[in-house]
Amino acid sequence: MFNYDKYIRKDKFPHIWCSGCGNGIILKSSIRAIDKIGWDKNDVMTISGIGCSSRATGYLDFDSLHTLHGRALAFATGIKMAKPKMNVVVFTGDGDAGAIGGNHLIHAARRNIDITAVIFNNNIYGMTGGQYSPTTPQEFVATTAPYGHIENSFNFMELAIGAGASFAARTTVTNPKQVENFIHKGLENKGFSVIEVVSNCHVQFGRRNEMKSPIQMFDWIKERIIPMSKAEDMSEDELENKVITGVFKNIEKPEYVEEYDKNIMAKAEGE
């Protein structure tokens, strides 16, 4: 019912991702969201870092840039400032955005630059072979956590909001319609938007944690989902290891490049 062909580079398919990987669901949802907002294909730019998520840019028929591990948002900042008419979408992962690129995520949010960052959160470093990521839950096994993981997980929503993002939402690949809607809302927001999509990696994460099929992993994600409205009445203990979904932040706030032009450019030109 939806014509994806208009937006994909057909000669690159079938894509690189494993059978049942949620990344394809996020990619498709992003396409529907971009279609819904109706941007001209020549004015859209997708940028990614390194990792499974970051292969997304290669499949879309927009200008695209596949950059360095963690740095997509920094490249995106330069592009947006050089050509503000571009609608800039960044595809990144939990390791890419939360570990090596954490600083860029914080500062892009702080500036509230008009970029939409879609974080594919599959709780693991997939491409390098299943090492623990900043969102691997405690007690789970990874190739670098053979005794069970002990670190605390990053909460991308709290991080994004704390840093100043004007839009922050979390959803999961088990609900593709919601992924589409939240990304669409993020694209609509004139400012920095973070959409965290909890995804599945049954190959590198599930397999080592008794969930080797995508269906098992989808069930595991689904049973932990708590919609925000419901979460409000629940205690911290009850919410442990749950996936709270919803729009956490959606406010209007001055956008960086517009502010730059309005204040700095205008004043400098006056001199």
Partner: peptide, 19 residues
């Protein structure tokens, strides 16, 4: 019934439903 659950969930762009 055209619910599109399969189309939307398919990660591989392998199913399309048309009226």
């Amino acid at each position: 019934i055209g619910c599109l659950v399969c189309e939307n969930i398919c990660p591989d762009f392998a199913i399309e439903i048309f009226e």
